[in-house]
Simulated scan of single mutants.
Amino acid sequence: MSVSWTPHRFSGGVLALDTANTVVLRGDARSFDRFADPAEIARFARAASVHRAAELGGRRLAVPEPEAIAPVVLDIRETTDRLFRNAVSAGGVGTADMPPFLRACATGLEDKAEEIGRPGKPFGDPAVPIAFEAALAVSALSLLGEGALARLRICPNCNWLFLDRSRNASRLWCDMAVCGNRRKASRHYHRRRVAATRDGTEREVGNV
């Protein structure tokens, strides 16, 4: 079954984190990989071209052969997640996580003739598509900046990585409309269960 690449799936804030979050519920027994079918990489890239247009400077992501680039994409995804998830937990980047991350990004950029970082053209010429694996590498490398590292968060509901761009850096959820509301609903349900249990116990004691 194909994935519906809704705006919520792009709650990471940048392409690299959105890609890292294609593994759902990391560390949980219910975890699954939305890129298990390589065809989803191409569908994700089409959606990301729209949802990440500002980051990409309007440049479209190209995935001509999903199966061919899947190993590179997955390598960048996994090393990115490991590096920055550990950085959030430890409060800084671990040097042991850097070499595999940099090697993966280098592979994504290999044989690509790109000029990036120009004002107004952060990912190069918007008139020409860019290879998804190259854009993914550039996005991941951009997270090494001090400003990005300080705003990296892990959502306590879904365990996704995201950038907190709120004014006072106090954002808790990757998506308040989804994870925030789910956690609120869960707490409300729990309080009602506790209250109902307490009320039933009191009634039972009163009848003794």
Rank of each mutant, 00 (worst) to 15 (best):
G57N: 09
G57L: 15
G58V: 13
R59I: 09
R60I: 14
L61N: 07
L61H: 09
A62C: 07
A62G: 08
P64T: 08
P64Y: 12
P64K: 12
P64F: 09
P64D: 10
E65T: 12
E65I: 11
E65A: 14
P66D: 11
P66T: 12
P66G: 15
E67T: 11
E67W: 11
A68W: 06
I69N: 04
I69K: 05
A70M: 10
A70K: 08
A70N: 10
P71M: 07
P71T: 05
V72K: 04
V72F: 08
V72Y: 06
V73G: 03
V73T: 02
V73N: 02
L74Q: 11
L74K: 14
L74R: 13
D75M: 08
D75E: 14
D75A: 14
I76T: 02
I76V: 13
I76F: 03
E78D: 15
E78T: 10
E78Q: 10
T79I: 03
T79G: 00
T80M: 02
D81Q: 03
D81I: 00
D81N: 04
D81S: 04
R82K: 15
R82C: 07
R82V: 04
R82M: 11
L83K: 00
F84S: 01
F84P: 00
F84R: 00
R85N: 05
R85W: 05
N86C: 06
N86V: 00
N86W: 02
N86M: 06
A87T: 02
A87D: 03
A87Q: 03
A87G: 05
A87Y: 01
V88F: 07
V88D: 06
V88S: 06
S89L: 13
A90P: 00
A90I: 02
G91M: 11
V93S: 06
G94V: 04
T95F: 09
A96T: 07
D97E: 11
M98H: 03
P99T: 07
P99A: 05
P99F: 05
P100H: 03
P100T: 04
F101E: 00
F101W: 04
F101A: 01
F101I: 01
F101C: 02
L102K: 02
L102S: 06
R103A: 10
R103K: 09
A104P: 01
A104E: 00
C105D: 01
C105V: 03
A106N: 12
A106C: 09
T107H: 06
G108N: 08
G108A: 11
L109M: 15
L109P: 07
L109S: 10
L109W: 09
E110T: 10
E110R: 14
E110H: 15
D111S: 15
K112P: 00
A113G: 09
A113F: 14
A113M: 13
E114V: 15
E114W: 14
E115M: 13
E115G: 10
E115D: 13
I116R: 10
I116C: 11
I116Q: 06
R118P: 08
R118A: 14
R118M: 15
P119T: 13
P119I: 12
P119E: 13
